[in-house]
Amino acid sequence: MLENIALQSSGPAISPSAAAALAVGLAAFGAGYAERGIGAAAMGAIAEDNDLFVNGLILTVLPETLVILALVVVFIV
C-alpha cells in the first residue's frame, strides 16, 4: 500500500494519455471560442445576403482545424 503511494508520487502527475486528452479538449475549447465571433459575423452577413452562406460556413469551421491537429497528439502518445 505504502509502496504504491510512493511509486505514484515519483511518477508524472497525470498519465500521457490523460495529458493528450486534455490537449485535445483545450484545443476544442479554443476552436469553439474562435468560432463564436466568426459564427456571429457569418450569421450577420448571411442574413443580409444569402449568397454568402458557403463562404460563411467555410470561415466558421476553419478554426476546427485546431482540433484536428490536436487530435494528432492522441496518436503520437
Partner: peptide
C-alpha cells in the same frame, strides 16, 4: 460571450453589408 453581452461581430457584419 454571456447571453445579453455585447455582440459587435454580428452587428458589424450586417452594418457593413
Amino acid at each position: 460571450s454571456t447571453a445579453g453581452g455585447s455582440n459587435p461581430e454580428y452587428v458589424n457584419a450586417r452594418v457593413r453589408a
